[in-house]
């Protein structure tokens, strides 16, 4: 094995190439060679990818965030309530939803940073709590443009323009707006992790928290930052989800945290913390996205799909680990 292969980026590329190779072989009568197939996949993976952006920082700092799927659901419901039911303009509804997501992340981060609750426990609690809150504020029903009147009848209100704008495709229908938002999220994380001091601090804390503390790094503040940003990205993802579904589903995002973690890990970011990067997460998102897409265009059954996904994830990770 050549030395370049030791670089995590090259290994993540190799895993992606492996999955792409499967696509070339099982191309479903040429469907895999159409640009539309790829553009659809980028759209479908974007919401997971946005979650994975926040997850990357949390994992680099040595933590884990199990609450992302639930905060996504809560944000989708809240955004729909504000924009559809309350008629708030987007410039109010979007910041309010983002703030709610960030507060959820900060709450979990506060438990972890200040009260030394283990990240697994604190974010598990947030996962349950945020899901409950989403169900409570929505009354257990999807928040759509169909509204029940006092007499029990249903009426239909128009979809707010912001939903159509965020759910649309640009460049002559070739690129989804949510994909652009995903790429911006990647850029933001890239700047934080590589261009700002915060990024160095996060790697240091994930590598050796005690050493980081002794060298004067504000550990608790950085943890708050990481979890708060993760919550913020969940809200971004929740808004994208609601815009694409034209409704806020209190069940949205169930088990998305697992996909987000899988994206980060398959990219090559270490679950132990301190090692990895956002570029790897982008490659991880593409790998998982293409895997799902290839199984989908070939109409593989659910049971086989689950087993194959498990096998291929393990295969890709082992492939990454290969060393001379």
């Amino acid at each position: 094995m050549k030395s370049w292969f030791r670089h995590p980026f090259a290994r993540a590329m190799a895993a992606l190439a492996l999955v792409l190779l499967l696509g070339f072989i099982f191309n479903a009568d040429g469907a895999f060679f159409k640009w539309g197939t790829h553009s659809d996949m980028y759209r479908a993976i974007s919401v997971y990818g946005i979650l994975a952006c926040g997850m990357t920082m949390v994992i680099i700092i040595g933590g884990i965030d199990l609450g992302v799927g639930s905060i996504l659901g809560l944000s989708a419901v809240l955004f729909s309530l504000l924009a559809i039911r309350q008629g708030w303009p987007p410039w109010m509804a979007i910041p309010a939803t983002l703030m709610a997501g960030a507060v959820c992340g900060l709450a979990a981060g506060g438990l972890i940073a200040r009260f030394r609750v283990q990240p697994f426990i604190a974010t598990l609690a947030m996962m349950v709590f945020a899901r409950g809150l989403a169900k409570w504020i929505s009354g257990g029903q999807k928040i759509s443009t169909v509204i029940q009147k006092a007499n029990g009848d249903f009426m239909n209100v128009p979809v707010p323009a912001v939903f159509d704008q965020l759910g649309a495709k640009i460049l002559h229908g070739n690129l989804a707006v949510v994909t652009v938002i995903f790429l911006i999220s990647i850029m933001v994380c890239w700047i934080i992790l590589t261009k700002l001091r915060w990024g160095r601090f996060m790697y240091a804390i994930g590598g050796n928290e005690e050493a980081a503390r002794l060298s004067g790094i504000p550990v608790w503040a950085m943890k708050l930052l990481a979890y708060g940003l993760s919550g913020l990205f969940c809200a971004v993802a929740g808004i994208c989800q609601a815009a694409q579904e034209l409704q806020g589903d209190p069940e949205a995002g169930v088990s998305y945290e697992l996909t987000a973690i899988a994206i980060v890990v398959i990219g090559g970011t270490s679950l132990a913390g301190g090692r990895g990067g956002i570029g790897l997460t982008l490659l991880g998102a593409l790998t998982i996205g293409y895997l799902e897409k290839i199984l989908s265009i070939n109409a593989v059954g659910e049971a086989a799909r689950l087993m194959l996904t498990g096998v291929i994830i393990v295969g890709a990770v082992l492939f990454q680990r290969m060393r001379k």
């Binding site: 009568d29 799902e292 989908s296």
Partner: peptide
């Protein structure tokens, strides 16, 4: 699930 249905339909449409 609606999001899954959308993904699968996209595949059907491209095929």
């Amino acid at each position: 699930l609606e999001p899954n249905a959308r993904k699968e339909m996209e595949s059907a449409l491209s095929r």
